[in-house]
Design a protein around this nucleic acid. Sequence first.
DNA 1: TGATGGAATCAACGGTAATC
DNA 2: GATTACCGTTGATTCCATCA
Length: 302
Amino acid sequence: MTQPTDKKPRRHRSLEHPLDVLTLPQQRALLALARYRYLTVAQMIAAGVAKNDSHIRADVLPRLCDRASDNLVKSHEFPRFGAKGRLPRVHTLTKLGAEVVADMERCDLSEIVYPVGGVQYANDFDHRAAYIDCCIAFDAWIAADERRDCLAFRHHFDKTGANRSGMQRMRSVCRIDLPRGRFIVPDGLAFFDTGTKKRAVAIEFHNFPDTGRAVKQLGGHMEPLELDAYSTFFGHNAAGRVLSISSSPELAVRVMDRMIALPGFRDSREFRLMAFNTLESVKADFGSGWVLADRSPAGIFE
DNA sequence: TGATGGAATCAACGGTAATC
DNA sequence: GATTACCGTTGATTCCATCA
């Protein structure tokens, strides 16, 4: 750490200064948090909040989350460390932050989702952070072509109802009810327009080395695909798809090989509705690199 | 088993440009 | 000229992996 010097201290806008004016990066940070719920500084850069991490840490976030009482953003530091150094801080909107975003978007506060209970996913950090990386990449792909449009996007960590027994039990907004009381909760549900056709997709991200677990998870999508449950969910009449994203190319290969080895899968309708990719490829360009289990092009994003 | 390097984040500082 | 926003650099911190 650098030692204090006798030089004049660097000046920043006082945290006591009223929040009358938000800078553009601060506005972008609030909108990004409303979109993705949980963001690290690196993810804020990916989401276009600013180009430099130190700028976000030193100039953007302090005025949003280091105030005495009227913070718009809450930061959470995890007590544990990851395999490659410490885990980054995660930022979320506060209720006041959600109110500011609702005012910026000219919408009702109920339309702005923010985590009421704060950040509670230290054990799930890698999975959720990677999933949010995918969401940011998806939005970047949408924004890259004006003909594309995201019509709806739901995340598994968004809940409705109350966290207590009662008339409205808490449930994920991604829950898809199936016959005989069964249900499935994909990591994400998206409905978008590629510019040439509309697609309804369920997104699953795999970051565990346990291939069997990923295959079992994907196996749970067979019935919803057969029933076109994802398209029906969004009121769409074409076949729904499943997007399987693996944390590494090696895991993706193992998952595809295990899936294609399932009896009857290769000749099923669901085979053509399940596409595979890697996190690295998706972050580089969400719309490319998708293949079916036999490595043939999936053709979903054309 | 201890030393060392790699990887990643964070904090502090300085430079530049825009605005008043 | 002072203030502020934005960006880049540097060093500290922490853990894990590797090697002698």
